[in-house]
Write a protein that binds this DNA or RNA. Structure first.
Lengths: 97, 97
DNA sequence: TTTTAAAAATACTATATTATAATATTATGT
DNA sequence: ACATAATATTATAATATAGTATTTTTAAAA
């Protein structure tokens, strides 16, 4: 039986990843954590845009952030997502710098 | 440099997968090919809906179909996608029947 | 060549996503 | 308490996607 309700959760997960900015964020966090300001510089996007994309990733448990003073450092919080992104991007080294 | 144009193609691929029906179709085609009518029965969706979702998957090279008479048999045409879907769905056996 | 079956394409409404400016929150330093 | 820096939230206009009835195409059978 191919009850499609079974696919709703995994589809939601993929959907959260399926955007160039969000994919770039996750790829950049695969190896090192990073704060929002640095991301926004690297991505050349307004802070609000980056925060919104981070919220979408957070809502799916793909990333999570820890606050250090005024900054929040994000990391990838889902191992399955790490594997998927590595397969998708051919395991290349990606870093925010 | 985290130039996000680099992520546009892979994001498009994920986006095509990121829908319960399309994910279900791809999962169902992982091991065996299938024609549209059988899919539509299994999925309990109108033929036009299934064909539209197949068109989206075809446009990203995720599936392709071969015609046998009036029927078109679809299969997964992208190895990376197979790997991603297996990781995502924990490698479970899925078949249209 | 007309009919029938299967699949694809079209048209169109409803809904969702995207991007970003503006505003609010949270934490720190003065 | 006030100013400032970093991040989050809200509001909203533009654009994209979803679902499906209807129409068209493709191929086979009568």
């Amino acid at each position: 039986m191919n009850d499609s309700s079974k696919y709703e959760e995994p589809a939601r997960l993929l959907k959260a990843l399926a955007h160039p900015t969000r994919l770039c964020i996750v790829a950049g966090l695969l190896n090192d954590s990073c704060n929002v300001n640095k991301m926004k510089e690297c991505l050349n996007l307004p802070q609000s845009t980056v925060s919104q994309q981070l919220a979408i990733l957070r809502n799916q448990g793909i990333v999570d952030g820890v606050r250090h003073g005024t900054e929040v450092f994000y990391k990838v919080a889902n191992e399955k997502v790490k594997d998927i992104v590595k397969v998708l991007l051919d395991d290349e080294e990606i870093v925010f710098k």
